[in-house]
Design a binder for these strands. Structure first.
Lengths: 201, 201
DNA sequence: ACAGAACTACCTATTTTTAGGTATATTTAA
DNA sequence: TTAAATATACCTAAAAATAGGTAGTTCTGT
């Protein structure tokens, strides 16, 4: 049976490559493509492809957000996420948001075609990762996330306090809690650990 | 005429895509592929393809280093760099090291095929960028690069001094110079600016 | 041989961050 | 309606980073 697939990736060359790769398979037709999340979302809603391949990291709107929006709007297109990040949190989020699969970009075409086949048969295909003891959910409060966001932009405690209309002392406490939650002893280390945990910083 | 091409990229899916894309062109045959710089270098020397497509960012040995090694060893394969980074420094370096082309991954297949054609005819194809006043060459000494590398891993001045077998005072000076060169006032800001300048941090 | 660059090292001084503590008002959830 | 979580704010104290200075040695290229 003919399968229609939509491709969203921020690199045109990757899109072109995937198109060729999928076209090769014979039973697949490419219903559309997009180089950012916003266009992807609009087009997928409009074209209703059987499957959408969504790059996780995209401009305007990342793949997970597109996935959420599509689910929220009742779109029936089955989404397979493509990512460079072998990260538990991303994969869990993708699954939670209703993705049918999650593949790393370092898989080969065989794995991709198998995943598409599986998903079309109603199954799922999530990249299994070596899930060690760590990655125990680290949780941040909304305010802590505000602080993390500004920290990641290179702001000092003083600047963050001004931007969030609160005192330096308060921001100090938030920073302390954030460090304690991650086990980091300085800001650079903190940002590294946050990235490892899958946060967009 | 038949053109043999080697592909090096750290994502198998990108390789597979490019293979399909190039195979489509008819007159191109893929002589080999690699998912890291070291393997790429060995294979290119062994297989002597007409053209090598080298991803700039690769594990083990980045594309620019592979390019340098190949030139140094007198390899005649014409190298076209593929990159996600529209960065003056990378492009200049690539040209200086003897690359025949530099393309962003957001170009389409038409541009890629044209570039290959141009290069095969003895020409070059460098992605022209909007070169604003900024990007005035920021240069780091080898030792400064050592320090930057360890800083980016979250190490403190103290730790860096130990790792580089020198005194804290010396590392302080290096850090000061690095900040002065980039205009950053703290480490997080520094790393952000370095990334903007195209450094692998 | 000399100039310049790079690496080293120390100085002072201020600012910022890190690392503990306590405490209170407000909101959230059981 | 308690209990817990969140955001707020202040305290002390030590460690680290930032920002300026001078200066000697070594290596490299002219």
């Amino acid at each position: 049976m003919e399968v229609s697939i939509f491709i969203a990736d921020d690199h045109q060359l990757v899109i072109d490559g995937l198109k060729m790769l999928l076209a090769q398979a014979g039973h697949i037709n490419i219903s559309g493509e997009a180089i950012n999340g916003l266009i992807a979302e609009q087009q997928i809603i409009k074209l209703k492809p059987d499957i959408a391949l969504l790059d996780v990291r995209m401009p305007e709107k990342d793949g997970l957000k597109v996935l959420q929006s599509l689910q929220h709007k009742g779109c029936t297109t089955k989404c397979i996420m493509l990512s460079m990040h072998e990260d538990a949190r991303y994969i869990k989020d993708a699954e939670a948001f209703g993705a049918k699969g999650y593949l790393l970009k370092n898989v080969g075409k065989v794995v991709l075609l198998e995943a598409i086949s599986k998903v079309m048969k109603g199954g799922t295909c999530f990249h299994t990762i070596v899930q060690t003891e760590k990655n125990q959910t680290v949780f941040f409060t909304p305010r802590e996330k505000d602080v993390i966001g500004l920290l990641a932009k290179g702001h000092s405690t003083n600047e963050i306090a001004s931007l969030l209309f609160t005192s330096q002392e308060t921001i100090k406490v938030h920073r302390k809690h954030i460090r304690e939650k991650t086990g980091a002893t300085n800001s650079v280390e903190l940002l590294i650990k946050l990235k490892e945990l899958g946060f967009d910083v």
